[in-house]
Amino acid sequence: MSAPDERRGTAPGGGRFRVWEKGSGPRVGYFAGLLGLPRWLPFLDALARTRRVVAPSLPGTPGGADWEDLDSHLDWALASGDAWFGAGLDGADLIGASAGGALAAEVAALWPRSVRRLVLIGPLGLFEPSDPISDVFAQRPGAYAPLVSNRPAEVEAYVRADSNDANEVVEWDIAQQRTRNAAARYLWPLGDTRVRRRLPRITCPTLIIWGDDDRVMSRAYATRFAEAIAGEVKITLIAGAGHMADFDQPQAVAEAVEAFLAR
């Protein structure tokens, strides 16, 4: 797996953020989940075989713009739009995973003509009291990775610093904490971003991908998204995958996404 190209995107107001991209073909944007994108992922590498994969860092995530002043869901939706347009993705396909899925849905809803096709991988954003999602922000030590993934040891390695330099380790750890802090800002306390009322504005064809072993949210949430989105929606279950389906089963998810985007 070779490193992606790196450049800077600019948001209105001057906020700068990291954009990673790789591959050739039609552009597809990627909004990462609760852990941000501290490293390039096998899933994105698989997609890059047929696509130009463009991953702008969302505010607060590694490489992302400042997030401390983003108070409301409107602020977060607009900042997500800034990442989308600032990375030059207007008119492209969009993939959002988990927390990034909630924000990808906002972009597709607010700028429906800007997103060609939408893929949501285990998106957060809804909360049904009779079918509560797990509290990803209240987990005992060591319990988070097994909750979100079927490959917990690899998740822990994914967010662990790989350096002998003490300062680099400190900066890395702070960046991972900041990612969680920022996600909690727009997801606290329930994970309900009120995106439900905006889903009918999504008119593009949409693929919803769900790990068949997702322990954060029940499969019924896929149906809830599907029923509220105005465009045509397909739901695909991924065998052997938890909440981080693209992390757990990168090849299977990449194949499902490629097939959907090629239509």
Partner: peptide, 8 residues
């Protein structure tokens, strides 16, 4: 311990 360190 799950309630002692909320992110942020």
């Amino acid at each position: 311990p799950k309630f002692t360190q909320p992110p942020g």
